[in-house]
Design a protein around this nucleic acid. Sequence first.
DNA 1: CTTTATCAACCGTCTGGTTGGTATAGTAAT
DNA 2: ATTACTATACCAACCAGACGGTTGATAAAG
Lengths: 191, 191
Amino acid sequence: MVEKKGAGRPSNRDVILDAADQLVAAEGAGHLTFDALSQTTGISKGGLLYHFKSKDCLLQAMLKRRVERYEALREQYHHEFANDPKGELKSILLAALDTDAECSRLGSGMLAAAATNPELLGPLKEHIALTLQRLERIAGSKVGKTLFYAVHGARLFEQLNLCDACVHEREDFAQYLLKLVDELTEIESIR
Amino acid sequence: MVEKKGAGRPSNRDVILDAADQLVAAEGAGHLTFDALSQTTGISKGGLLYHFKSKDCLLQAMLKRRVERYEALREQYHHEFANDPKGELKSILLAALDTDAECSRLGSGMLAAAATNPELLGPLKEHIALTLQRLERIAGSKVGKTLFYAVHGARLFEQLNLCDACVHEREDFAQYLLKLVDELTEIESIR
DNA sequence: CTTTATCAACCGTCTGGTTGGTATAGTAAT
DNA sequence: ATTACTATACCAACCAGACGGTTGATAAAG
């Protein structure tokens, strides 16, 4: 009864989730199995199932962790852009574009869930719906959405390994997006 | 030795491919199996394996068909925009955005391949690399890419069922993109 | 009598999940 | 301090079903 939900020590739980993300990124969502996970982590299948009592639970945990990390990043950026009138939009875009040390494994859970049990994407879908609503409020109805999709399109292409070289262009892309935000919202407000 | 590669009659091959696309869209890439396909098509597993001698072959065929359809659409749009200086860019975007009667199942093969054998994405990756090169040539280096990613981001989100309501907004989105193309390339050329 | 298209039956492997057990560490009463 | 109990964190062995793929047969068409 020590931990209930709070961020505990570097438990094996996180080790497993990391390995799961890596596995999906390296071999595709279809190869995320307890057996494979057992091999790469060194933890037996029984051990894995102690932490996540079913595969759905594992996928949910992957998904949840990513959304939480995204939200943390977004808020961080939001503070950095505190005095920018378009700061909210910018923080949404940059957080989505951002990576966590490695290059863009932000969607492993998403792809794995989509492959094995699309219903698990429900919460993520809600989160996205809220983001889209927010985008409509804070930017021209189309500008925000379009840039949002652009960022996620780039991220997904990179994760699916459909393009390379995105990595070192990432910073450039981010700068370009920030410029675009200013220019486009300007145009839209004139009309 | 009748057919080698040409488009034959409405063979069961296409029926199977349609069913495969549908299955992935409905249940996720992980549920694309010969057994499931056998049930939905009414063709026995042996029958399926006659047309596609392995699962990799099936995935390759799905992928290939989609790329071909995309290319056909793109060329069609290209003719429509013959007198538009930005016609090439516009045709690339609209073709990617377009649907084939149903709503955006353009990426079933892609997702299924990514899930089960990412190496199969090689040809698609090349195709995308070429498109990105072309985009750099015909538009401002960043404008084209950004809008390309935006279109594919929207498409993928819709396919993964991460947003709805995209469908009836599709035409709006297309119109907006065309406007954006003109505006953005204008801005970029001024600078 | 060969080619095309199809099927039912089968096989070995993989997969998610269950079961029953072990080792460790903390708690608390004796 | 010893004993007894409990919770955590694992593991090996097993299971039933699903999976990709093989085989041998069949039936129609040219």
